[in-house]
Write a protein that binds this DNA or RNA. Sequence first.
RNA 1: CGGGAAGUGGCGCAGCCUGGUAGCGCACCUGCCUUGGGAGCAGGGGGCCGCUGGUUCAAAUCCAGUCUUCCCGACCA
Length: 575
Amino acid sequence: MLWSKYYIPTLKEDPAEAEIVSHKLLLRAGMIRKLTSGIYIYLPLGWKALQKISDIIRQEMNRFGAIEIRMPAVQPGDLWKESGRWDVYGRELLRFQDRHGRDYCLGPTHEEVITDLVRGEIKSYRQLPINLYQIQTKFRDEIRPRFGLMRGREFIMKDAYSFDRDDQGATKSYEDMYAAYVSIFEKLGLKFRAVEADSGPIGGSFSHEFMVLAETGEDTIAVCTECDFAANLEKAEVKYADTPDSPADCPELEKVFTPDKHSVEEVAKFLKVPEEKIVKTLLYDADGQAVAVLVRGDRELNEVKLKNLLDVIDLRLASAEQVQQWSGAPVGFAGPVGLNVDVIYADQELMFDNDFVIGANEKDTHYLHFDPRRDAKIKGYYDLRQITESDPCPRCGAKIELTKGIEVGHIFKLGTKYSEALRATFLDENGKERPMIMGCYGIGVSRVLAACIEQNHDENGIIFPPPIAPFDAHLLALNPKDELVKDKASEIYDALTAQGIDCLFDDRLERPGVKFKDADLIGLPLQIIVGARALQRGVIEIKIRHSGEKIELGLDEIVSGFQEVQKKVFEFYRL
RNA sequence: CGGGAAGUGGCGCAGCCUGGUAGCGCACCUGCCUUGGGAGCAGGGGGCCGCUGGUUCAAAUCCAGUCUUCCCGACCA
């Protein structure tokens, strides 16, 4: 492809609207443009990269037995009413009516449609299992779209749905998809981890998230340095090697004056006790009910664990008024003794110690010498806090590391939630009607592109791994007015193209600096630089984008030499 | 929805406080010149100052309302 005949509108400056690096670079490299909030136009380079990602996904999905279909973006409201999600999905579901006043929505996901299809077509155990997928534009009217392709309202997703006769089959389908996902992200040349995840509101028995590792990731994941344990922070279990001895006797509770000391940090400093000898009492409004949770002062409560324990839909930190009402004191002085809340849970860690400082439910007052078992009516001790790097791996006890990642894929074992709601049943060998066991498997295709850039860039621009790069190589004719340079570059372009190498040829009448900057910005893995100076010495130059290494090639060995360098680059990405 | 910020040629911004000819850099067009890291010189085109209303002889500038966008929180591929 000739640059002069293509459309790559690069930008010198960072657009004001972009905050994170992938968003800035996607805009600057001329890959996307915003139409309106959370909705983007894919320009040629961006679209080509997305196609390459889609092709790899398609190839691996097919290899693992899934079959591609294409479902509509517009879906009838009736189906959503049937599954019960019309009322629970909330405002993220963009709804509208047609001219007859019938309800429709833009599909944020396709469980309803696929289940509707399958229930009408598949009636016998002989037709199972089946796994159908599509690569499609989804629409979710996100509360707050942000970060370019990272969280758009309109985005491209690959979603697959499996249907099985029994749980064993469903597990096999799940495992196949797990294997397919591992293969997909390996073939994309990305550094990633599969982590155990909370299955969230979609429900189901177990689930994994696929995380592209990047310092700028929004999710934190806990990874074991020894075994293959990896889990989303929300899910990561805190486990104690053995139960420590019961704590020693504890002096009686004693009130102390703590003027204006609200935070754990302030109280610790004021009373000269370590933060771990303080217990914080967090008050929550759980579906309207007051709940108190006790956690050590130096720990963070994990709200997902709490939510799962309580099994509630709406969990929120109590408002200042609620705190006043329930504790009888302003925020910062709540404590488990004399609290006007019936349900008190504690993190399991509190079983192992006593003699804590707690709030006294009175302004500017705390208690010393709190013993959880002696002084409070605690409903139960559970794993409720966030794991830290000083906790052992819950599997093997080795060291845990926390790293950042971007969720690009999520696989779920759904069970029969939708097949029961929509009556997708089949007849088994005994002629008995049974609901199909489902699984669903998503990859955020457009997010993969953003995540790829978050993981692979430097101060000059994108550094594409070869599988995602929109072109294999970037050929620069430094001064196309120089006949020799122009002819030689054209010759190289033809020779590489003949070898099936997809080459972007910068033939513009621009100064060299402009071309170098643009080449680094759009980040193709290899740059082939043809300039008068080198040509006089009978060589051209290849620059490897990720390492900056430059290799000179004689004019008679360009194609073979290029392929050798390319091989080295593939090895770097373990391809 | 709660909290914060911003809307001025395609992009990045100044001007606003203290009302009176709309400005700078990049990009764009023409010519000269230049070609191994976003050159230089000369000439040129392009702006409902987000929108509506108000104050005023006069509004980008002051006032009110409204829309949009971005950032932080609740949601997710």
